[in-house]
Write a protein that binds this DNA or RNA. Sequence first.
DNA 1: TTTTGTTTGTGTCAAATAGCACAAAAATAG
DNA 2: CTATTTTTGTGCTATTTGACACAAACAAAA
Lengths: 205, 205
Amino acid sequence: MNNKKIPEIIIGRLPIYLRALQHTAENGIKTISSQELGELVGISAAQIRKDISQFGEFGKQGTGYSIEFLINKLCEILKVNQTWDVIVVGAGDLGHALAHYQGFKDRGFRVVAIFDNNKNKVGQTIGSFKVEDAAEMSERIRSLGVKIAVMTVPASAAQEVADVLVQAGIRSILNYAPVNVNVPSYVKVQYSDPATNLQKMTYYL
Amino acid sequence: MNNKKIPEIIIGRLPIYLRALQHTAENGIKTISSQELGELVGISAAQIRKDISQFGEFGKQGTGYSIEFLINKLCEILKVNQTWDVIVVGAGDLGHALAHYQGFKDRGFRVVAIFDNNKNKVGQTIGSFKVEDAAEMSERIRSLGVKIAVMTVPASAAQEVADVLVQAGIRSILNYAPVNVNVPSYVKVQYSDPATNLQKMTYYL
DNA sequence: TTTTGTTTGTGTCAAATAGCACAAAAATAG
DNA sequence: CTATTTTTGTGCTATTTGACACAAACAAAA
């Protein structure tokens, strides 16, 4: 096991491995080689071995990796061997969709509240919860102890919302708004603007 | 202007620059320096200059870049100086949300159809269009000449759907399904699984 | 037991990416 | 007109990332 800092690019690949492993595990397979995993995720076997070896010697020569063991290790490393509470900010269509997205379950996340500043939306029922007033968001985040937020707000509101989130103790933001936000270095932001994602591909058309 | 192949990592940053520039242009500002743009997007000025210079000498010493000019150039490079038709596959919550996502407008994209294989959903109205039968998807893609698809289908269906899309002529896929898909090298896939995006951040909590 | 085959973990090298720094160009000020 | 300031484009260098290849470990077969 290596104690030096792990590059972010490696951390970013671990969820991909984890996803493929969990999928494979459902088919009752017990072990997997770096070669096989590589074919599943489109990454070279050597790359996968090196990535995994940053955290320990989890494989066995001649056999490969125990899928169950590796899943446990990856969950532990990524801290998803627990369920994280998540809030959604912005009760538009995308916010609605993410608020009752079934894919968070079993992947370590659970949406606990959704907020909007539009008084017409506040109080509306979305699945099992009601849209809460954004004005009370900060207090709610603190009392719930939430560390993760999903932002589905207009670009014009994103920075202001991000500031409130950070102030309230949020440490990870998944941002669907089409704008960069400025946050302290201890807060992570993942950008997921649909239009930007499409624009990354049109160059190749 | 450099004629050698542009690395994908640079292409991936261009939409970020474009987005910030368009936002800045709305405030009536005419020129911007690499320094200023860098602060907006959180990327070093040198990096931005080098990225942009791959495509030509668009700036002017002492002044910076004409925002309007640079926007036009970036749109041209990214081929978003036109509107691309897009289809959405999977009429779940996420499919719904993306089908009438307003953010595609003015960014080079327009959703023209949404498909699902669930007979109960087929025929339902979503915004201005009806959910179409996935069985007719291939034919519709061909007759519409669509090159870009957004997939919001269950993991179990993703590979099968991707195969149909590729067969029908789709060249870019924005994939929200939590699974890797295998496509020929001439087809681009961008992954945007919400849970995976969150898992990339929990390591740092 | 011995041999053959498989697969990991990692040292070494190669390639890709990013940072630095500065000449040259343009703008501005004196 | 000259000096100063600003800012680009880029050559050079450093760092990061990825590929290769192989000894060592283990499994399986003979």
